[in-house]
Design a protein around this nucleic acid. Structure first.
Lengths: 332, 332
DNA sequence: TTCGTGAGTGTTACCGTTCTCAACGTGCAC
DNA sequence: GTGCACGTTGAGAACGGTAACACTCACGAA
């Protein structure tokens, strides 16, 4: 920077002004400085800038190690939006969604002076750990089911509404009731899907079948599917996500129950290839990219407002159902 | 830091020594400093450290926006290994794998003083762009097919060997020849899989069927599958990845060709749920997490060696075949 | 005794920005 | 002509660490 100043015949301070688009610089001077910058191939040192301003122009993301489809794809939405806003994105992942590892992740990001944090927080342990972030460090949580009293602004899909959509879709097709292949009971998102499913059945006066605890992958779905396939009264199944649905489809197939002729199946997420399952899966679409972008916008908004007198906003994105061939009118 | 020094009754330099585990500090002094640090809740400012040492302890990853399965899961392998080595990971994604966007991504990371870059580089455009990185900035490319003259150390799976494995597996089952549902021809990885497939057929004296250009997703696989289903001579298909295989499976099913009774199908990647396709997919396993960890190890190694007199190492990871139920002996 | 050596510590400069404040025109109102 | 506001510029001090070097001992060898 000193070299640029010398070459342009100005002080280092004027160079700084040019870099930061300060208005009070004569056009001619600005040109001279810009020319010097170009000829010296000058690039501002962000570490020095961070030291002086206490702003790193870096955002942190806390994710978790998983093969879960959704959270991974969220990263891209966040990163591209952050880039557009002039931020770089740093990642800290945790192996398990517990208090301690999340605290360490926050700490790591804080040490690197991130200006804000977006945490993928499907379980409350993440959110509570976030409350111990250094004061002044803005956080936004994305995912989860929304307790209504979250300590942070939150972005999430309306899981209850999504489950309602799926269940109602099946009821509208004439099914007497809808069974549910549930996710893990200690995940609020899974619980919200159970809630939406159950209340829709209640409202319709339909019988509410029992559920059993599961997990998010196809193997767990297969187990659930075997259980359901044994029950001849099952004509419709709402699965907590598409991967579970994949397992359910296979279990039904093995048991000789045709989909959708004998049993209708609905998923949740709308994974990239679920339109090519056998048969193509009717599912509830979640736009993870959009979720990421909304989370970023919320974070930037809260960062710019300084200390938030505004209540922590809760952005809820509405899911929509994508009807394909795994659902059909009830034949009974 | 000054406050800590004052409280401990030492100079700031001694505090710095304690932080950096410098040996020449008396145990008692060290204790006093540590106590002061604790009581003041002191944390070193990494921006200042970066400014002074010109090392940010941050690594950059260049990825691309995609729903492709592999690259996403690599991030987690890299991040957790980087964390263990004391590095934070920053992400820069590009929308398209072209020269310009990659250059911009490198630039963004360089501005933030990353100590090294791991680029997910399935296409040569990425690697060539990387050669324009500032001198002294270490880069490692992961993915692609390996030209043998890469300007950078590279980590990748041996795609040719994987394709051989898949093709030979089918030939061993008695199939007269093996058809191929290819990926995009301008992706070296897809081309390498074609090469491995073709040379295995040659070696076996089998007829080499024509291929048609494709893409990486199930929709493209479905198109390829329809073409193959029309040809009654097809008894075995090797697909360029699992998503393509999913589409092929569906097309075969719709055409009334049973898998594996009439046609055997093999995929590539071993995605988390491909064991639950219908039928469970025989496929070539790629360990993306391991790939990420190897890439990181290679990067750290090259960073520590200073200016590399060593030739750019090429780490090639061997894939292995996972036999499931989508393949069976030929019935003709 | 004298000197060298090495452990332990402090002093000072420096990394490359931004911030604060002062200084210098210049034009305009009085 | 004087005073004043304002646009433009520069000098110097932060920001919070690390690097280089000097200094002070205690100790052992010459």
């Amino acid at each position: 920077m000193r070299d640029v100043a010398k070459l342009a015949g100005v002080s280092h301070q004027t160079v700084s002004r040019v870099i930061n688009d300060h208005p009070n610089v004569r056009a001619e001077t600005r040109e001279r400085v810009l020319a010097a910058m170009r000829s010296l191939n000058y690039r501002r040192n962000l570490a020095a800038r961070t030291l002086a301003t206490r702003e790193s122009h870096t955002l942190g993301i806390i994710g978790f190690e998983t093969t879960l489809f959704g959270p991974e794809s969220m990263l891209y939405g966040i990163e591209s939006a952050a880039r557009a806003a002039g931020y770089l994105v740093s990642v800290a992942t945790v192996r398990e969604l517990a208090h301690r590892p999340v605290l360490e992740a926050v700490d790591r990001l804080a040490q690197h002076d991130v200006d804000g944090i977006i945490a993928i927080a499907p379980k409350p342990a993440v959110t509570t750990a976030l409350t111990h972030a250094p004061t002044g460090l803005r956080c936004v949580a994305v995912g989860g089911a929304g307790s209504g009293i979250d300590p942070f602004p939150t972005v999430r899909v309306d899981n209850v509404a999504g489950a309602r959509l799926a269940t109602q879709h099946l009821l509208d097709l004439g099914h007497a009731t809808v069974h549910h292949a549930a996710g893990p009971p200690d995940w609020p998102e899974a619980q919200a899907r159970v809630d939406g499913w159950r209340e829709t059945l209640y409202a319709a006066g339909a019988m509410v079948p029992p559920i059993s605890p599961g997990w998010w992958d196809a193997a767990a779905g297969y187990e659930q599917g075997r259980r359901l396939a044994n029950d001849p009264s099952v004509t419709a199944v709402f699965c907590a996500n598409d991967r579970i649905a994949l397992g359910v489809l296979r279990a039904l197939h093995e048991a000789g129950r045709r989909v959708p002729d004998d049993v209708s199946v609905v998923g949740f997420d709308d994974m990239p290839d679920s339109g090519y399952f056998m048969p193509p899966l009717t599912t509830v679409h979640q736009d993870f990219g959009e979720l990421g972008r909304r989370a970023l916008a919320l974070l930037l908004h809260h960062m710019s407002r300084g200390d938030g007198d505004a209540p922590p906003a809760d952005v809820v994105v509405a899911p929509e159902i994508v009807a394909r061939s795994s659902t059909a009118p009830c034949r009974r």
